[in-house]
Design a protein around this nucleic acid. Structure first.
Lengths: 217, 217
DNA sequence: AAATCTTCTGACCGATTGGTCAGAAGATGG
DNA sequence: CCATCTTCTGACCAATCGGTCAGAAGATTT
């Protein structure tokens, strides 16, 4: 245990650092609260309180609650898109699908709050994300479906419906973040551990590969 | 087009009918709004407005917002539990799993609002449902896992992890309600039609049966 | 038709909400 | 050290929130 005192005599910080520290802290707290309570259930005062700042200071950095929420969302989406587009047609589906599932479940484990905000957005009709879903995400979705069709034409997998396979992959991996509370209740645990995530990934990989007639090595 | 006028000269209604009509109408509107906007995002005034009643009248039937929400939730949960517990060990998994998936997806199609409220509850930590999840739902969950284990011991299916199979079934069927907005955007439709739900069910049945090594007839 | 019970509702309440603003406090560059 | 720019914040605001209540309006019972 360190007994080093902080913030008793405020250290002189550069403006750049002050700005970065505070907005990072606000974004971090906001992500957790938006995830736990939803947009309407989260108040600026609550964010300010947990971030250790006066409410007016939060509004100094993010002029409106809306703007803050949009910033949180866009941060999330950029992380999201990255892990989406790494299934390519020159890979074998055996490897591509496995690593996709593993990566997605790891993301659910490591960024549960982000994942849940995303889910809540869509659950409520995607009022803020609709445009980006219609452009960026849809583009990636269709590209990935093309990859599936390519694999099917090469007879690397059964002729399954590509779109619905994507939906299944998305929802069943996403669930390890969104429904973590329910899962841990069912398993009589306070929270899921690494083994649970691994077992989930194993089951999904098995189901998808075998289910699509992809011969596992 | 009918030109029959209603509510110009109010019809004489019995007290029993009045009470039933109004509370039903309130519950119906409340379910839709809670589903669309979440608990905090839904106001009593909004419910009253859409139900065509003054706010004070809504509070006459349901004394608090909390009580109204709980009523909506408990209605949902009772529908839910019914479709859960019809997998038994004397059935063959081929039939039992297929009809479970089909039934669950039909539920997502026919009760999308209820489904989304349920999902949002869990997403935000199940503050109102926790107790029932820990008792009723957990009991059914464990019973169903036992059925899976029985099927496995009879070598009717591969030795897959029963708990995670349940999670997969739950999330991938649930998704056809929760993420309907996203799915329809991806498919360039205003909303999913019967064929979409059927294709989804077909894919899931195929994946689960083949994936679990259950020989389809 | 009178008495009683239920339903209905406009007016009102304190608390909380997101947001504003003037001016203090602190950091920066010369 | 001073002028200037950025950061910070308490006080304040209109709007809205969930909820109360007295009394009107309507239904039921006698």
């Amino acid at each position: 245990m360190s007994v080093k005192k902080r913030s008793v005599k405020p250290v002189r910080r550069s403006l750049a650092k002050i700005r970065k520290d505070n907005s990072d802290q606000i974004l971090k707290v906001a992500e957790r609260l938006f995830s736990d309570k939803g947009y309407s259930g989260t108040t600026i005062s609550a964010i300010a309180k947990e971030a250790g700042l006066p409410k007016a200071n939060v509004l100094y950095y993010f002029h409106t609650k809306d703007a803050l929420y949009k910033r949180v969302l866009s941060n999330i989406l950029s992380i999201w898109m990255l892990s989406m587009n790494d299934m390519t047609e020159d890979q074998h589906p055996r490897d591509a699908l496995r690593s996709y599932i593993v990566k997605k479940i790891r993301q659910s484990k490591e960024h549960p709050h982000a994942s849940r905000i995303f889910a809540a957005e869509i659950l409520h009709g995607a009022p803020y994300l609709r445009e980006q879903l219609e452009t960026d995400l849809k583009e990636q979705f269709q590209a990935t479906c093309q990859v599936f069709r390519h694999w099917i034409s090469k007879q690397w997998m059964d002729p399954v419906n590509p779109e619905h396979l994507m939906f299944m992959l998305w929802s069943s991996t996403q669930a390890y973040a969104d429904f973590q509370v329910q899962s841990s209740i069912m398993l009589s645990k306070t929270e899921l551990d690494d083994q649970d995530f691994n077992e989930g990934a194993d089951l999904l990989v098995r189901l998808v590969l075998k289910g699509c007639g992809i011969n596992q090595v």
